[in-house]
């Protein structure tokens, strides 16, 4: 029984414990943000950003990230950035029923590939699969986990080229208009919108990045 029930499929209380453990780990290995000298791997990340575009306004940046974080942690974003290898579903972000797995490329496995059900647009109807072109999870080698991340950790992760798919400032700025990102604002029937409009999000995203991509303080 349940020999292949993924370990992700755990009760809420257990799940929280697991997240807590992960948070502790991520704090220990965390790196500092753009624009701040770091003894760790800042060199790599810093050079990816043309200095001229960085305004280094930590207060404006951190404030903007509050909005960014609210969007990224909304079900429309977090559901495809899970901690485990199974996406989440619905406004309560429950583990996707029937347990589709990420696969190497993030597009699923065997007969359980994302696009087998998720079309290039939302399928009409209650609980019908939402959809957008190229529907997928981050690939296995760049999981870009949102689920359970603190604002501090997520900010650092987003700009870490080792964790963000080698995206530099330009690519990060462009990513606000990525098709899958935009699809968050076209929720399927029964799913809520992110907490602000896409233009408001994009403005916050840009402000955050262009002011130095500062991470909010640890809490």
């Amino acid at each position: 029984m349940n020999n292949n029930r993924p370990s992700h499929y755990i009760s809420p209380s257990k799940k929280n414990k697991k997240i807590a453990v992960l948070l502790v780990l991520s704090v220990i290995i965390s790196v500092t943000a753009f624009g701040i000298n770091s003894r760790y791997n800042a060199q790599n990340t810093y050079t990816a950003i043309p200095k001229s575009t960085v305004k280094k306004d930590s207060i404006a940046s951190v404030k903007a990230f509050e909005k960014v974080y609210a969007v990224l942690m909304s079900p429309r974003c977090v559901n495809c950035h899970p901690i485990g290898d199974i996406p989440l579903q619905g406004d309560d972000s429950h583990v996707h029923k029937m347990f589709p797995k990420r696969g190497e490329d993030g597009k699923g496995l065997y007969a359980m590939k994302c696009a087998n059900c998720h079309q290039s647009e939302n399928t009409k109807g209650e609980h019908a699969p939402p959809g957008a072109e190229n529907w997928h999870l981050p690939p296995a080698n760049m999981k870009m986990v949102f689920e359970g991340r603190s604002a501090h950790d997520l900010a650092k992760q987003l700009i870490d080229t080792k964790q963000n798919g080698n995206k530099d400032m330009k690519k990060l700025l462009e990513h606000a208009d990525d098709g899958l990102v935009l699809s968050g604002w076209k929720p399927a029937q029964g799913n809520s919108l992110p907490p602000m409009s896409h233009s408001e999000f994009k403005k916050a995203w840009t402000t955050w990045l262009e002011n130095g991509a500062y991470a909010p303080a640890k809490k």
């Binding site: 007969a111 590939k113 087998n116 059900c117 079309q119 399928t123 109807g125 609980h127 019908a128 699969p129």
Partner: peptide
Amino acid sequence: GVAQCGACVVHLDGEAVRSCVT
């Protein structure tokens, strides 16, 4: 009718798509 059960699976260019939502 909503891609939940798999009874409608066909191959579309070799992939096991659910024909009820395709």
